[in-house]
């Protein structure tokens, strides 16, 4: 269980995170979504004790990260692929981490096998591809068999096979009852990986919902083309639908499905030249939401910290 309460982080006059509150529950993959610079990484870094909040708190299992006894046994985190020293081998990198948290040495071999790096365990990390380093990061996160897993942009720079591997790994970890929080700036990635999403923009929570709910909420409107559009608009409004007129004179109808629009037009003997049910992509929805979030604060743009 992760709890973030009224978290604020300011750099001079700009707020990277601005009164952010949310909870992340076990047994599901929660996506932490927002454009570059929205404050995702800052929030995760505060959660993991690498940065200090200006105010508010971020707790894991009720404790601040630096209060957790042998934290690798409770929380596994992947912050960036470069987090291992390139001069060390994968094995010594993990052996050092394991030793610091009193984790048995044979876990190192186990997790290296789990992530498919057993054959390169004694190669220097500097020779690894980005995908291999991501796998090593996940191996480090799994070392202490933690109940909470936090990943910052885990699919950045990965090829399709790597992305699929991370996705199935995370889903499997959540299915085991663990708390999984991952950040991303890609809605399309979250749509297939996450159960819940926390959408933030400009350091504030914009939306907290399930992916399914988000999809259904923004799914339906109907594009209608008719030579007698104003008349049809009147009829549809009478049925309780919301109608807007596009620049081309077409109607966009929300609150009534395509069958209802077709039947209403037939009943009123209004000819139709086109009738299209449209669903906004999650990506569109997400961009619209985060653009709005960007509008309610006029602070200057910070350099992107994803």
């Amino acid at each position: 269980m992760i709890e973030v309460r009224e978290l604020t982080k300011r750099y001079g006059p700009t707020s990277a995170v601005d009164g952010l509150s949310f909870e992340v529950r076990p047994g599901a993959v929660t996506g932490f979504l927002g454009p570059n610079g929205a404050g995702k990484s800052t929030t995760l870094r505060i959660l993991l004790g690498l940065q200090r909040p200006t105010s508010g708190e971020a707790l894991i299992g009720g404790l601040r990260y630096d209060q957790i006894c042998r934290p690798l046994r409770r929380v596994g985190a992947v912050l960036d692929a470069g987090a291992a020293h390139p001069g060390r081998t994968a094995f010594t990198h993990l052996a050092g981490l394991a030793r610091s948290n009193g984790i048995a040495g044979d876990r190192v071999t186990t997790v290296l096998e789990e992530v498919g790096l057993a054959s390169v365990a004694h190669q220097r990390v500097g020779r690894f591809s980005l995908g291999m380093r991501q796998r090593l990061g996940i191996a480090a996160a799994l070392l202490g068999d933690p109940a909470v897993i936090v990943l910052d942009e885990p699919v950045n720079g990965l090829d399709a096979a790597g992305i699929r591997w991370i996705r199935s790994t995370l889903r499997a970890l959540a299915a085991e009852g663990r708390t999984v929080l991952l950040s991303s700036h890609l809605m399309s990635e979250m749509a297939v990986t996450a159960d819940h999403v926390l959408i933030i923009g400009r350091g504030r929570l914009v939306e907290e919902t399930s992916v399914a709910e988000l999809r259904s909420r923004f799914e339906r409107d109907v594009l209608v083309r008719s030579p007698r559009a104003p008349e049809l608009s009147h009829v549809l409004t009478g049925l309780g639908a919301t109608v807007t007129v596009t620049g081309d004179g077409d109607l966009v109808v929300a609150g009534a499905g395509a069958p209802a629009v077709g039947e209403a037009a037939a009943a009123a003997s209004i000819p139709l030249h086109g009738l299209t049910a449209r669903s906004a992509t999650l990506e569109d929805v997400y961009l619209r939401m985060t653009e709005e979030a960007a509008d309610f604060q006029a602070a200057p743009e910070r350099p992107a910290r994803s």
């Binding site: 004790g49 990260y65 985190a77 470069g82 987090a83 291992a84 020293h85 390139p86 990198h93």
Partner: peptide, 18 residues
């Protein structure tokens, strides 16, 4: 310094946050 220059300080502090 090698931990700061390679970014592995993050991993070190995740293991030992104090």
């Amino acid at each position: 310094t090698s931990e700061f220059t390679t970014g592995s300080i993050g991993a070190a502090l995740l293991a030992v946050p104090r």
